[in-house]
Write a protein that binds this DNA or RNA. Structure first.
Length: 273
DNA sequence: CTGAGCACCTGAGGGC
DNA sequence: TGCCCTCAGGTGCTCA
């Protein structure tokens, strides 16, 4: 589900709830294992802390308190929502009780998500956060920097832009969409991308992520913002999940194929190389 | 080091 | 209706 736009939408929703800097009264763990066992003692040590802010790095949500940080990754099916008493759902795994009386619920049917702590003072030294590539919506992400990090890459360009060491936040949907906009064939060897085409790819990664943000993200089945609303960027997909349908540009039939283990969609005419 | 393959887990949807 | 199969937005492991 969640790539950069979806995680950022969730972050903004949480930021509103945290605007009053509530106290985190209690962390209720309905189960202690998502993808990995949770560090229960470290989490419990944050009970009573005051929530100061919520940040996003890559696809991670970083809840900053005056006593330390909470790190949340949504995996494939994770959601955070405001859950008043009586609105419990199957696969709710965590409840955060706030001093405002609100309760935040983390729900994640597949349990590929992550919930642990991080060091607020040295976030880049946290194992999950070190070795991450540039944020695509920051200035440091440029055609020159992308081209540079692709120079020795033998993998496909699509696998490369989904590699969080090259650039963060781009997942399987937006990789296909950005490559379509940039007219680059997903299977092209990354090190064969010209400097000029790398510039175009950067522009289109930024463009598709910003469009998706403006549309409230993409909701395929699970994604909801913290108010429980769907995004609608899925209605603007040009290639993702549109196999056998007509290309919006040239009317050719969109193709689908597994590439590096992930379903991949492209227009065979618009994206010849 | 790289890259490919696969595991992790539950649910939805298609075919029969 | 129901069973079986495949596939799903991510990450991180092992292996070559």
């Amino acid at each position: 589900m969640p790539e950069l736009p979806e995680v950022e939408i969730v972050r903004r929703g949480l930021a509103e709830i945290f605007a009053s800097r509530p106290q985190l009264v209690r962390i209720e763990l309905l189960r202690r294992d998502l993808r990995d066992p949770m560090p229960v003692k470290k989490l419990k040590a944050l009970e009573g802390a005051q929530i100061l802010a919520v940040h996003r790095r890559a696809k991670y949500l970083l809840i900053e308190t005056d006593r330390g940080g909470l790190l949340s990754h949504l995996g494939m099916t994770g959601t955070w929502r405001v859950a008043p008493l009586g609105q419990e759902l199957l696969h709710d795994h965590i409840y955060l009780h706030l001093s405002t009386g609100e309760r935040l619920a983390y729900r994640d049917p597949r349990r590929f998500g992550i919930f642990e702590t991080y060091d607020v003072l040295q976030p880049t030294r946290s194992p999950r956060l070190e070795n991450l590539g540039p944020e695509p919506l920051d200035r440091e992400f440029s055609g020159a920097s992308l081209w540079n990090s692709l120079r020795n890459r033998k993998s496909s360009i699509k696998a490369a832009i989904m590699d969080q060491k090259i650039v963060v936040g781009v997942g399987n949907i937006y990789a296909s969409e950005a490559l379509f906009l940039a007219r680059i064939k997903p299977s092209l060897a990354a090190d064969k991308l010209s400097r000029l085409r790398a510039e175009g790819l950067v522009e289109n990664i930024v463009a598709v992520l910003q469009s998706a943000l403006a549309a409230g993200g993409s909701s395929i089945s699970d994604f909801r913002n913290s108010q429980g609303d769907s995004g609608y960027f899925q209605n603007q997909f040009k290639v993702y999940d549109r196999q056998t349908q007509a290309c919006v540009v040239c009317n050719s039939k969109i193709k689908a194929q597994t590439l590096a283990g992930r379903s991949t969609f492209w227009c065979p005419r618009c994206q010849r190389v």
